[in-house]
Design a binder for these strands. Sequence first.
DNA 1: CTCCGATGTAAGAGGGCTATCACTTGCTAA
DNA 2: TTAGCAAGTGATAGCCCTCTTACATCGGAG
Lengths: 195, 195
Amino acid sequence: MSANRAYHHGDLRAALITATFELLAEQGLQKFSVAAVARRLQVSSAAPYRHFPDRDHLLAAVSGVAARELNSAVAEAAGAAGPDPGDRLAAAAGAYVRHVYRTGAGLPVIYAAGLSRIEDDGRQQHTRALMATLMDLAAATGTPDQRETLLLVEATIAVAHGYIALFADGFFTRGHHSADDIAARAIEAARTLTK
Amino acid sequence: MSANRAYHHGDLRAALITATFELLAEQGLQKFSVAAVARRLQVSSAAPYRHFPDRDHLLAAVSGVAARELNSAVAEAAGAAGPDPGDRLAAAAGAYVRHVYRTGAGLPVIYAAGLSRIEDDGRQQHTRALMATLMDLAAATGTPDQRETLLLVEATIAVAHGYIALFADGFFTRGHHSADDIAARAIEAARTLTK
DNA sequence: CTCCGATGTAAGAGGGCTATCACTTGCTAA
DNA sequence: TTAGCAAGTGATAGCCCTCTTACATCGGAG
């Protein structure tokens, strides 16, 4: 059967992915290590290697889940944003900020170096679906061709990623800003891109 | 006298800072280590500790130089951008992208965690001067008060930082984009913020 | 010219991480 | 009931890192 069953210590495979998200949200990709995840789950440092052949395969699994969830969050935020295409695309930027704040798994995790060769649970399929969602939202604003659509998607992502990256790096700490503050600003800035 | 004199192996203090910039540009902050810098300069791994008490003090010195040079680059780009205040502020975003591409030392380096307590060669003075330059450029666009000015500065930085961060993380590699491509897009996106 | 202090080196302590290996535990199927 | 396998453990090799300590070297001041 699949690995999704309870054994000695429960469903360790899923727990590893969950705990990785926690670590990413708290300390970022830099501090992530297989050993730290094992420590958090109070299993031996060898245990994760029963479920993932190496560190990159664990990250790839996390990447797949992150892409799938981010896709959902973006689609949901766009749906809730009303009929205006520019508003809907800008809402995606806000969803990106909030998602990365909660999970720590933004595009640097989803597209982390060295993961492209690994295919885990349809990871590449999920990343493609995410891009397709964003391309659809951008195209709805009336971009003349696919190239322009892609440029608009990239600009929207850059705005959102810039805000949450600076936030995570502590650049905004002086003003006591919350993640919702940052998301609101990202939405506002992204909104100007189509005006 | 100051440490800026030639000794056994030349001006090691300055060489350490230069080599750190090279490492940052090539591999990013994640891969930086005192040992790697020493290796690059072909000195023993203990040699850097004759000039900096610890790793953070070396990074703080780099941070100060980075802030000073980034300030110059931003001011110069704004000056070359013509009379329109919006164009001048957008040019600052382009300068940020190009500077980080060349030196690897963006705001995450300048504002790196744990450096705030260290005062090296007027590091805090240089970072304040950089912010002052940006605030002046933003205020010239006609923002109604200082709070709005700060928000505009942060949005501009977020756009620029988002582009170069995604570029550095390999998100744009499929399209063979150059740093100048990315800078041009950052300028264009930043330009929309004041329209 | 000689001595001293600034600069550099070799060696290593101490720590974290990745990954492997032999071994153990306990669920499940026959 | 018991054999077999999935899952977990402890120990450890090997690597890289930070930072310290004792010693070596060199240039300049007296």
